[in-house]
């Protein structure tokens, strides 16, 4: 298969970036998207050109490192898929493919397709945890949790922190990411003692980081590779309102 790639190239945040066009030729349909970029990069180096920098690691859809906007879709057009799981067979032969980095003020660009997502870490550091110290917990079975609640907490905990929700949101909002953690910890008994403080501090950190507001477009849940639903955002809203009354 052959493709024409339009790739965002930008040396560093201070330089102006632009799209550059590359040909990806003779690509096997079994190649994954990132492997296709590997091949292009090998050729670029051989030709004496700088390779395209992009983030990636596990290449099996769980670490959350990879992610670009492909032809206008975060992680590409396939639903419930990370970029590393996208295969070239899902494109048309000869297709023009636009590859852009996540765009958001809270995700400043580092170079080419790499962005800095440490704002997500900052949000978790503000309260995305249960404050216990190692060695002091009760027995695992001392805290029974109804199966459906535990399952629901798991669904929310499936978030891989890739940032596709922010990238796809017309407002670059991080509400889906924050709501996933709030929901996971808010559903289980262990998370109750800090529930109201947690939501306040995580939301404050989110606002501080410069993300946009949720206006209920639903693009986040459509782009989320783990298919986390935007219902969780309603829960986050509710918890924040309650937290104002509780204390």
């Amino acid at each position: 298969m052959n493709f024409t790639l339009k790739v965002w190239r930008q040396k560093n945040p201070n330089n102006a970036g632009r799209f550059r066009t590359y040909a990806a030729t003779d690509i096997s349909s079994d190649t994954s998207f990132l492997e296709m970029l590997d091949i292009v990069n090998e050729q670029l180096i051989e030709r004496g050109d700088d390779p395209i920098a992009f983030d990636h690691d596990c290449r099996e859809g769980i670490c959350g490192t990879c992610g670009c906007v492909i032809n206008g879709f975060a992680h590409g057009h396939q639903e419930g898929t990370t970029l590393c799981q996208l295969h070239m067979r899902s494109f048309d032969d000869g297709q023009v493919i636009w590859i852009e980095p996540w765009r958001a003020r809270a995700f400043p660009l580092i170079t080419d397709l790499m962005v800095d997502r440490s704002s997500f870490d900052t949000i978790i550091q503000a309260g995305g945890f249960i404050s216990i110290r190692t060695g002091s917990p009760p027995d695992g079975n001392a805290i029974p949790i109804p199966k459906d609640e535990s399952d629901a907490a798991f669904e929310a905990a499936a978030c891989i922190g890739c940032g596709a929700c922010v990238a796809s949101c017309p407002n670059a909002s991080a509400m889906l990411f924050v709501s996933a953690k709030i929901t996971q910890l808010g559903l289980v008994p262990q998370g109750q003692p800090e529930r109201w403080d947690r939501v306040k501090s995580m939301v404050a950190a989110m606002e501080e980081a410069g993300f946009g507001a949720c206006t209920n477009h639903g693009e986040c849940e459509a782009a989320c590779p783990k298919e986390i639903p935007m219902d969780l955002i309603a829960r986050l809203n509710r918890d924040l309102v309650c937290s104002m009354v509780k204390k």
Binding site: F129, I130, G140, S150, F154, Q184
Partner: peptide, 16 residues
């Protein structure tokens, strides 16, 4: 025990 207290959503039986 440690992980449960951290909120790790381990699989559970119907009895919780």
């Amino acid at each position: 025990d440690q992980c449960v207290a951290q909120g790790v959503p381990f699989a559970r039986e119907y009895g919780g």
